[in-house]
C-alpha cells in the first residue's frame, strides 16, 4: 500500500485528555497523542486495560472533547464539526448496546433513520443478509448470542456506509468461531478500501489484519508496521539447523559484515543479522566449507505478542528509571 499518495483520514497533534475528578488526582487518560492514519489503512491500537484506547476513540468520534491538542477526522476538526464527524464515521463500541426488546431489523431501522440513510429498508436488509442475521431479523435481540449481537453492532456501524470505522475490541468475549467470523468480515471491509481504526487486545488478530500498529499506554509508545516493529525490537534472526555444531565453524561467520549476534541453541545456530537476503548465502557457504551438514534454514519470527510484551517491559523499565 502506498501511504504517501493518499489522504490522511485521522490526524492528531498532541491530543490530550485529562479527567478531573473531585477530591482526587487528575487522571491523564491520553497524553500528547500525535498520529496519522491514511485512507484505506487498518490501524491497530494496542494497549493494556485502562491505557486510554477507548477514550481516544471517543475523542476521535466526537463523543468527548479533548483537554488540549487537535484532531482531524475525515477532514473535519474535532470540537468544531462534531456533527459532521459523527455523520461520517462508523463506530463499534466496546459493548454492542442494543435495544434488547426490539428485533434485529428494528434496531438497525432506528439507526438507519438517525444516520439519515436514504434507502433505510435496503441498507437494513443488505447488512442483515451480509452478516448472516437475515433468518433472525424479526427476533428480539435479547435472544441473540454474544456473537450475533456483535455482528449486529457491526451492521449498525456500517448502515450509512462510512469510509472510516472505529472498532473497539471487535472480538472481545467472542468464542473462536464467532471471532473468526467477525475477523473475516473486518478483512472484507479492509478489502473494500475502508479505513479502520481498531482497538484490540487480540495480538494475533492485529498482526493479521493491521497495516500498522500503535502500542499505547496513555501515550503512544511505538507505531509502525508489525514487520518494522519486529525488526526494531528484535532485529531479524535466522535459525540454521545443523546435524552437528563445532565451535570452530563459527569464527568465519562472526567475521561476516552484518552479523549482529550468534548463539548456539542445541544443534542450531541462531544468527541475528541486518539483511538475511545477502547474508544467508554467505553463511551457508561458510558452514558448508567448514564441513557442516545443514538440515534446514528458517527465519525466527517473533509474534506480535513478543513485540507488545517487550515494548511494555521497556516502557515499565523506563518509567522506573526515570
Amino acid at each position: 500500500m502506498c501511504l504517501d499518495l493518499i489522504q490522511e483520514m485521522i490526524e492528531t497533534k498532541d491530543l490530550t485528555k485529562i479527567f478531573t475528578i473531585k477530591k482526587a488526582a487528575d487522571i491523564p487518560a491520553v497524553v500528547g497523542l500525535t498520529l496519522s492514519v491514511a485512507e484505506g489503512e487498518v490501524f491497530g491500537f494496542l494497549g493494556p486495560n485502562g491505557a486510554g484506547k477507548t477514550t481516544t476513540v471517543r475523542m476521535l468520534t466526537s463523543l468527548i472533547g479533548p483537554t488540549s491538542g487537535t484532531a482531524r477526522v475525515n477532514g473535519f476538526t474535532v470540537g468544531e464539526a462534531d456533527q459532521d464527524i459523527r455523520r461520517s464515521v462508523g463506530i463499534l463500541t466496546e459493548s454492542p448496546g442494543m435495544y434488547e426488546r426490539l428485533s434485529a431489523s428494528k434496531n438497525l431501522d432506528i439507526y438507519a433513520h438517525l444516520y439519515d440513510v436514504a434507502d433505510v429498508d435496503g441498507q437494513v436488509d443488505k447488512y442483515l443478509r451480509m452478516l448472516g442475521l437475515w433468518s433472525r431479523r424479526d427476533d428480539p435481540v435479547g435472544s441473540f448470542s454474544k456473537g450475533m449481537r456483535q455482528k449486529l453492532a457491526i451492521a449498525r456501524a456500517l448502515l450509512h456506509e462510512p469510509q472510516l470505522l472505529f472498532l473497539d475490541e471487535p472480538t472481545s468475549g467472542l468464542d473462536p468461531e464467532a471471532a473468526r467470523l467477525v475477523r473475516s468480515f473486518i478483512q472484507e471491509l479492509r478489502d473494500q478500501g475502508r479505513t479502520i481504526f481498531m482497538c484490540t487486545h487480540n495480538l494475533n488478530e492485529a498482526d493479521r489484519l493491521c497495516d500498522r500498529i500503535g502500542i499505547f499506554k496513555s501515550r503512544l509508545i511505538e507505531v509502525d508496521t508489525p514487520e518494522n516493529l519486529r525488526k526494531k525490537l528484535f532485529g531479524r534472526k535466522v535459525v540454521f539447523h545443523l546435524r552437528e555444531v563445532h565451535p570452530g565453524w563459527l569464527d568465519p561467520i562472526r567475521e561476516l559484515e552484518g552479523v549482529l549476534d550468534l548463539q548456539i541453541v542445541d544443534k542450531k545456530l541462531v544468527i541475528a543479522m541486518d539483511n538475511p537476503d545477502i547474508l544467508n548465502p554467505q553463511i551457508i557457504r561458510a558452514l558448508v566449507q567448514s564441513g557442516a551438514d545443514i538440515l534446514f534454514v528458517g527465519e525466527l519470527r517473533h509474534s506480535l505478542e513478543d513485540i507488545y510484551l517487550q515494548t511494555m517491559r521497556d516502557t515499565a523499565e523506563e518509567e522506573v528509571a526515570g
Binding site: Q83, I91, T93, G97, M98, L114, Y115
Partner: peptide, 17 residues
C-alpha cells in the same frame, strides 16, 4: 436505562443533536 444497557454510547455517536 440506556446507560445500564450500554446503548447510550452508540446512540450519542449518531448525528443526533
Amino acid at each position: 436505562g440506556e446507560k445500564t444497557t450500554h446503548s447510550l454510547e452508540p446512540l450519542l455517536a449518531t448525528p443526533i443533536t
